[in-house]
Write a protein that binds this DNA or RNA. Structure first.
Lengths: 231, 231
DNA sequence: ACCTGAACACCGTTCAAGT
DNA sequence: ACCTGAACACCGTTCAAGT
């Protein structure tokens, strides 16, 4: 008559009933929770993160998570920042060319986000964590050293932030679409009475050189920054 | 004994039991649904849109919506595009200064999104609708007329797209924070062992001139575009 | 053609309790 | 200090039915 499976033996998934791990689970910790959240989102996307699934993944009850974490929002904050750490360029930092340093850090930033496609959409929606702040701090130093004046600094930083985040979020959304959705998009562009000849001609939505567009656009932006001769 | 209220008389909200409207509701239609969705999100944010609430708002049962609409995703697609229409500049379009035209359209784009703060976060996550496509088409024409070469066109368009979307989404997130969260942010910056002197000095996170940063950053980007002498 | 309620398989989180 | 299950107030959507 019992509708719930027996609770003897090792912890089992509420969802599948299969044993989650043959060995003993280590105790819960913030680190384990955050790491599991990253893995879960890597595998199943932003919407795939569920407190219940997260607990399952860790072999614990759902509510156990809440002793370590305030809410799901807190998990998202920590997961995002955990993925954004910067280890710096190969050699000692201040290279002769400021542009090289800036581009290296931003390419790495973008690469981090592309490794975890859920992160780009999360970036602008949460409080800034230590890793993101460290990157902004570094960017600020680099631009000052390049000779940007104080009055232009914040606008320059936000513009670069917008470029990195926008390029990444746009790419994870529009990049590598299925052949079907490509055909759909193309048909949409050619719908009678609603035509977009310029977009059609330039293949804006079919062009797949997202890396090139990122680099080139970043070049435009850096070219446009007003720099004084030297720091 | 009945646990549900009587179903005589005009349609009542399942949630509150109050009559939703003293007059007869007009029949459902795609237009009414989309408009109600926009109103709901304007009032309660992206997370405030619920199929049940939407139905309540319209005085219908939840499942009635699904005759007009495929899914909640479909409602979001339509709501976004409905809010992004461009009516063009006051006078006939091709002004002597291409920059003026571009800036006008982009300022208007940003203004549309700021009027509906949920829209910026939605923009990069959905299929492009007619209003957004029309704006991209217009932008493409304007840049070609300005003399950008074909090979640079798509990178330029995406960079500008990133700027508009990024600036708006960043502003709706970080803009006008409460005094409390400002203090929190400041304390975070000054935490011992984890300091961000450059960000602190430039007041990157406290500066509230988002309009200025948008315009200035767009200026940098347009300055950096490589233009041939004339179209 | 248009609308409906019941039901299903989920959510995040509160609570009162266990060790 | 750390973990738990039951329960609450929600979700989006399928289905079989009504008019």
């Amino acid at each position: 008559m019992a509708t719930r499976s027996s609770s003897t033996g090792p912890k089992r998934s509420q969802r599948t009933g299969k044993p989650l791990q043959s060995t003993q689970e280590p105790p819960l910790s913030l680190e384990r929770i955050v790491q599991a959240a990253v893995e879960l989102m890597d595998a199943r996307g932003l919407g795939g993160l569920t407190m219940r699934r997260l607990a399952d993944h860790l072999g614990s009850g759902v509510m156990s998570l809440y002793w370590h974490v305030d809410s799901k929002e807190g998990v998202l904050d920590l997961a995002l920042d955990s993925v954004m750490e910067y280890r710096g360029p190969a050699q000692a930092s201040p290279s002769p060319d400021w542009r090289e340093d800036v581009i290296h850090m931003l390419e790495d930033w973008r690469a981090c986000m592309l490794r975890h496609p859920w992160s780009a959409a999360l970036l602008p929606r949460r409080a800034l964590g230590a890793s993101v702040l460290a990157r902004l701090e570094l960017l600020s130093e680099m631009l000052s050293r390049a000779g940007i004046c104080e009055a232009d600094l914040n606008a320059a930083i936000w513009s670069i932030w917008n470029h990195v985040m926008g390029a990444t979020v746009t790419r994870t959304n529009f990049g590598t679409p299925s052949e079907d959705s490509k055909r759909d998009a193309q048909q949409r562009l050619e719908r009678p009475g609603e035509r977009y000849p310029a977009i059609e001609a330039s293949r804006l939505l079919l062009d797949e050189d997202w890396d090139g567009a990122f680099r080139k656009g970043l070049g435009f932006l850096l070219d446009g920054l007003p720099l004084k001769p030297a720091g």
